[in-house]
């Protein structure tokens, strides 16, 4: 990591579900873990998320999804990042994700899936180590 560089994380809620609490808790928790968190709130389209991730040059995109549409929404974001040549950005997913879908998300290229009940500290730890591994590799 560059001297003085901060890990930048976009926390976004794609799709139509209106339950923002979880995303907010994660956003605040990640700030307290020392990350710079860009929070864009509810009802984001995949296109909005991709364009924000690129302009803000984030290291990580965190998607919070409780609507049940996690497979299609995540697919759209992954495809969008890829189309922009930005698939080096780490994507993680949180929310209500049934067990069988976790592997499906990872097969799409999602780095990790955090189901409800995960402490924010675990997410922060994962991000810190995954980003430093990626930066060293790159």
């Amino acid at each position: 990591m560059n001297q003085g560089g901060k890990i930048r994380v976009l926390v976004a809620k794609p799709g139509l579900d209106g339950h923002e609490r979880g995303a907010q808790v994660v956003a605040y928790g990640l700030r307290d873990a020392g990350f710079e968190v860009i929070y864009t709130g509810l009802r984001q389209t995949a296109e909005q998320i991709v364009s924000t991730a690129i302009q803000e040059d984030v290291d990580v995109v965190g998607l919070s999804i409780l609507s049940g549409a996690h497979l299609s929404l995540t697919r759209k974001v992954m495809d969008g990042l890829k189309a922009q040549g930005a698939d080096d950005i780490l994507v993680i997913v949180g929310g209500i994700i049934p067990d069988p879908d976790i592997q499906k998300l990872k097969d799409m290229g999602v780095g990790e899936v955090f189901v409800s009940g995960t402490p924010v500290s675990a997410i922060a730890q994962y991000i810190a180590s995954a980003v430093s591994t990626r930066k060293n590799a790159g």
């Binding site: 901060k6 956003a27 605040y28 990640l30 700030r31 307290d32 873990a33 020392g34 990350f35 710079e36 968190v37 860009i38 929070y39 864009t40 709130g41 924000t52």
Partner: peptide, 10 residues
């Protein structure tokens, strides 16, 4: 923490 919550985009 040195972290920040950047919410202007909201």
């Amino acid at each position: 923490s040195g972290g920040a919550l950047l919410g202007d985009r909201l």
